[in-house]
């Protein structure tokens, strides 16, 4: 007997992502949305683990949960009416939002249907040896960042530096 262990785990985490994303979108309370987002991020990290991308999974948790989400909740708390449960998450601009989201959905579905999934990695999906342990990715990512993708990497870091300086400038008292 061979339990489809990874399939079960995949569906558990997929269900977690979808349900917590739904909580995030439909909740009227910003803090609940943030908690929904937390579990969605966690589920995505779990999917990365199932795909063998260990470094990306951990980076996902560190950056999105440890960085972005903490700052998000912190920002919510610094805004008005923190001690009451009044922080609402209402829907605004419904018609343009539906247009934009519909467009994005259309493009995503097109990409989903037109991508040759098995051949994307240059291999046929049946030929991939699923029982082989996946190689650690950290070293390869580091090497690629310092060689092939050095220019994009540096451009992104300049962008982040710009954002940092901009934030410091806005936060200045005598600006």
């Amino acid at each position: 007997m061979n339990i489809p262990f990874y399939d079960i785990l995949f569906y558990v985490f997929a269900a977690l992502i979808v349900s917590s994303a739904a909580v995030m979108v439909f909740s009227r309370n910003v803090i609940y949305s943030a908690v929904g987002l937390l579990f969605a991020f966690f589920g995505v990290a779990a999917i990365y683990v199932l795909l063998g991308a260990d470094f990306v999974a951990v980076a996902q948790i560190l950056i999105y949960v440890g960085g972005i989400l903490v700052l998000l909740i912190f920002g919510v708390m610094l805004s008005q009416k923190v001690t009451s449960v009044d922080i609402k998450n209402g829907a605004v601009q419904i018609v343009p939002a539906i247009l934009v989201v519909g467009g994005v959905l259309f493009i995503l579905i097109r990409v989903l249907l037109s991508t040759p999934w098995g051949a994307a990695s240059g291999r046929n999906i049946q030929d991939v040896d699923l029982t082989a342990a996946v190689e650690p990715t950290t070293q390869q990512i580091g090497r690629l960042l310092m060689t092939e993708y050095l220019i994009p990497f540096e451009i992104v870091s300049v962008l982040l530096l710009g954002a940092l300086i901009g934030a410091a400038f806005i936060a200045r008292k005598d600006a």
């Binding site: 470094f55 980076a59 948790i61 949960v65 440890g66 909740i73 950290t138």
Partner: peptide, 30 residues
């Protein structure tokens, strides 16, 4: 024996921060 062990410890600890903020907020106490 995680290949990204120490990185994992740093990352998973960020849930502690979230939990503390949630505890502080949900208690509804200054």
């Amino acid at each position: 024996d995680l290949n990204v062990g120490i990185f994992y410890i740093i990352a998973i600890s960020s849930f502690v921060v979230i939990a503390i903020i949630l505890a502080g907020w949900s208690s509804n106490n200054k």
